[in-house]
Write a protein that binds this DNA or RNA. Sequence first.
DNA 1: CGGATTCTTTGAATCGTTTCATTGTTACGA
DNA 2: TCGTAACAATGAAACGATTCAAAGAATCCG
Lengths: 346, 346
Amino acid sequence: MSRSASIKDVANHARVAVGTVSNVLNYPDRVSQRTKDRVLQAIDELGFVRNDAARQLRAGHSRTIGLIVLDVGNPFFTSVVRAAEDAAALQGSAVLLGDSGHDASRESNYIDLFQEQRVQGLLISPVGDVTERLDQLRERGVPTVLVDRLADESRYSSVSVDDDAGGYLAARHLLDIGRRRLAFVGGPTSIRQVADRLQGAQRAVAEVPDASLEVLDSAGQTVLAGRGVGDQLVRRSAGELPDGMFCANDLLALGVMQSLTMLHTLRIPEDIALIGYDDIDFAVSAVVPLSSIRQPTEALGRTAIELLTEEVDAMGSASDRPHHRAVIFTPELVVRQSTAGAATPE
Amino acid sequence: MSRSASIKDVANHARVAVGTVSNVLNYPDRVSQRTKDRVLQAIDELGFVRNDAARQLRAGHSRTIGLIVLDVGNPFFTSVVRAAEDAAALQGSAVLLGDSGHDASRESNYIDLFQEQRVQGLLISPVGDVTERLDQLRERGVPTVLVDRLADESRYSSVSVDDDAGGYLAARHLLDIGRRRLAFVGGPTSIRQVADRLQGAQRAVAEVPDASLEVLDSAGQTVLAGRGVGDQLVRRSAGELPDGMFCANDLLALGVMQSLTMLHTLRIPEDIALIGYDDIDFAVSAVVPLSSIRQPTEALGRTAIELLTEEVDAMGSASDRPHHRAVIFTPELVVRQSTAGAATPE
DNA sequence: CGGATTCTTTGAATCGTTTCATTGTTACGA
DNA sequence: TCGTAACAATGAAACGATTCAAAGAATCCG
C-alpha cells in the first residue's frame, strides 16, 4: 500500500545526490564502483522502479511507437504486429497496439490517444482518409509509416506487398504444371487486393498462347462464398470445367475444395489444381493440403519499424528534404498437394 | 517541425492563466463562457494536445491498464482483448496489450514495462509462476486480475471458464439426442483444460445407466492429430464404432470430420454425431457445420475490467481487508448440423 | 610539494500538467 | 450604499526524472 519509491528516496537511502542515482541508471561509467554498489543496493531494498512518465516528460517524447491495424484477429496483422514488436524491442522501444476494426472513429480515437502519449512515431494501416491528420502529426514531430498500403513516396514512407506479383505467381504456377483453362475466384473487384491479384493472374495468362482465364465472381471472401462458387462448378459438364483455379484468398479456396471433394467426382489436383492466397494456418491441414501465396509478414513488420526509425532520425536532424521510402515486398509461392504432381493436360 | 504547444502557450495566446486553461479542460463549469471560448479558440489555433506524461506524473498513475495474454493470434484471446478494450474505453481507460507468446521472459519484460508506465492495474493470463511478482506489484499499489485461470480468492481476483461444465454440456447433449456409445478425443490429460473437459463428460455419462465413454488419446490438439484419430476409427468394424464423439477442441473435431467424411462410408450426424469445443470461426463453415461449446469471451474481458476496477477502488480506500472475487463463467452449447436431428439409436 | 589533469559528485533548473489557496469580480439584499 | 455571498481567474507549488555547470577529490608528473 506504500507509495512507490522515487529517485529521491533512493538518493536519501544511499546518502548520495539525486543526480548520482540518475547517473547510475543512465551512465554507469561515470560513477565509482563504491557508490554504484550503494545505490544499486538502495534500489533493490526500496524496490525502486523508474517512473516513465517523469522520464518522458523531461525527454519530450516517449520510447513507444503507435501501431494501428485494421483487425488484430486477422492472422496477417497478428504476424505483422509480432514482428514489429520484436524489432522495436531490439532498439529499446515498445509498441502500443490499437485495433481499429475497420472503423474510422476507433482509428481516430487511437490517433488521439497516441498523440497524447507523444509516441515517437506511428505505424498505421488506415481505414479512412487520414492524410490530413497524418500531415498534422508530422508537423508536430510525429512521423508516420503506412502499413500494407502503397504510399506516394513524396509524402510518406510505406511498406506493402505486391498483390499483382502474387497473382502472377499463382497463375504462373498453375500454367507451369501444365494447366491451361484457368479460373479466378474473387469477391468484388472494387477491393484493391482482389483487383491486383486478378490483374497479375491475367498478366501471367497473357504470356501463354493457348491459356485462358475465366473470372468467377464470389459474393464475398468467405468459406461459404467459396462453396457457393464450387457448387455451381460441379454442375457443369466436364468439358466446361477449368483445370486450374486460383482463389483470391484461402477461405474461398477451402470452400471451393469442400464442394469439389464432397461428391467425389472431381479430384484435386488431378482434375482441378487449386491454389489460394495468404497461407493461413488451415491451408496446411485441409483435406487436400492447399497451395498458397504467402505474404512476408515478418519482413513487413520489421521493415516498418526500420523505416519509422529512419524518419524519426531524419526529424532530429533538421534537414528539410523529406526523404521517404516505399518498400514493396514480393510474396512467395508455397506448393502443397492441391497443385502437386506433374502436368496432366487433357 | 515546430515543438508541440504547451498549456502555457495556450494561456499566453488566450491571455489567461495556465490554471484557467487547465480548468477549461477538466472543469469546464468553473469557467465563464467568454473565457472558455477564447481558450478553446487558442487551443484550436495552436493545435494543442495534452501531454499525457505530464498529466500522469502529476496524477501519480496513468489511465492505462496492462493486459498480458498468452497468444494474441488465438481467437479466444483476441476476443477477450477486444471486450476488455471496449469496457476500459467506457470508463476512460486505455489498454496496453502485451503478447507473451507462452514465453516467461517476454511476460516478465511486459510486467517491467507496465510497472514503469505505472499502469492502474494488470490483467494477466500467466505463463510461469508470477505470484511473487504480482504480490510485489500489489504492494506498490498495482492490483492484478488473473484471466482464464482460477485463483485462490484469498489472494487474487480472477475470471475463468468452467471447463468441467463445458465437458458436461457437450456429453449431455450427445446423450440427449440419444447417443450412448460416446468417445472423447483429447490431447495429453496433463493439460488442465483437457482433463477438466473430460471429467465433465464423464460426469454426464455416469448419469445415464447404459451409456459408455471411451477415451481416445490424440497426439496433440491440431487438425492433423484429429485426422489421425479419425483414420484409426474408420478401420473399425461397425459394431465397435462410437455413435457420438466429443473432441477437446474444434481443430481436433474438424480433423476427425475430414477422415470420417472422406470415405463416404460414415455419415455425420446420422452414424456419428460430432461436437467440438471453442466455437472457432471455421466451425460454422465446415463441410458439416460443427456443433461446439462457446466460451463467453466477451463476458470474460468485460468482467476482468470490472474486477480490476473494484480492486483499484479498494486500493484507494485504505481498507486493509483484501476483498477478491473469482468469477467463473459457464460456457454455452451451440448446436449445428453435426449433432442435429432426432435420436437415431441402433 | 604544487599545479595540472582527470575523475566523481552535487543540486538547482527543467519538462507540462493539475491543484488549491488566494485574489479579484459581480450580483444581490438590506 | 455597504456587506456578503457566489462566482472567476490567478499563479506558485508539486509530481519525478534528467541534465549540466560547477565544486570537490583523487591522481599524476615534474
